[in-house]
Design a protein around this nucleic acid. Structure first.
Lengths: 145, 145
DNA sequence: TCATAATTGCAAACGAATTGCATTTGCAAT
DNA sequence: ATTGCAAATGCAATTCGTTTGCAATTATGA
């Protein structure tokens, strides 16, 4: 997961105001290896001594997701929405049901299939969401707990 | 979607008490062509003159889902959980983004792929969730609204 | 019929997210 | 630099879907 995401530039193109809150939030998303919840961002910022109001965090995340700067994810077994920088790579997630670790899968096994389905159902297919879940190597030894 | 689901029998095997509330809820699920929200069930029962407390509805749905009599679904673009009778057929959902109509897809395009992924990632794969979304034939003409 | 655990109804509480409103801010035009 | 103003923020209150504690009721097996 390279840090090659230049949001400064993309941010400009959105027409959104460049506020310190939004910058701070983007920085956190950029540094995170995993998708993050709004509250986590809120707590991290508070911890750093740059508190940003929780509703501002929610609003910032939503507007930035609207502008496609970031992605808003619903993940299996996670009540809250998670957010991550939009690197514009179509991907899927493999989620560990025990430790909740998420690994991104960049190859999509469904491209072919969608075309077939379009013909069969006459739906115009706009997208799909695939999550795969299971147990990561470390967690396999204690699946009970 | 045939009505060949004999819950009477399966219900017995669960060890759950056969209460009129649970029976009423199951009947609604059985009659519904679409996955249903807890509140919808609650309102329908109230409308029929057999009111069942909303928290009872939630509890009944949860225990019956635990016993695998029914399925609890998280659907793209739907805030609430939806429930349906468990006909024990592994399936996916094709959801219309405009009218929210859901059509079930009974062929799973991922069986092969999961095996491959298990080898590559060393995760033990327990399952997956695939939703496909787009616009149904009727809604394609007014995608704007 | 009785005993008992499971289930229910009700009201209160919950976590996540959203909203109204007064204040502050970024930024374009002067 | 100064101004004007829409956009963004902070705060508190509110929403929505769901869950919980508890006392009263009910299904089931002895």
């Amino acid at each position: 997961m390279k840090n090659d995401f230049n949001w400064e530039e993309r941010f400009m193109q959105t027409g959104l105001k460049r506020t310190k809150q939004r910058i701070a939030i983007l920085k956190i998303l950029q540094e995170s290896q995993q998708p993050v919840a709004a509250e986590t961002i809120y707590l991290k910022l508070k911890g750093e001594g740059n508190p940003v109001n929780l509703s501002t965090v929610y609003r910032a995340l939503d507007t930035m997701a609207e502008k496609k700067l970031i992605l808003k994810l619903s993940i299996v077994g996670e009540g809250r929405k998670l957010f991550e920088i939009n690197r514009k790579i179509h991907k899927h997630y493999l989620v560990c049901l025990r430790c909740k670790r998420i690994i991104p899968i960049e190859h999509c096994p469904l491209e072919e299939y969608e075309k077939k389905l379009e013909k069969e159902t006459r739906y115009l297919i706009a997208g799909h969401k695939l999550d795969i879940y299971g147990y990561c190597p470390e967690c396999q030894s204690h699946i009970d707990s």
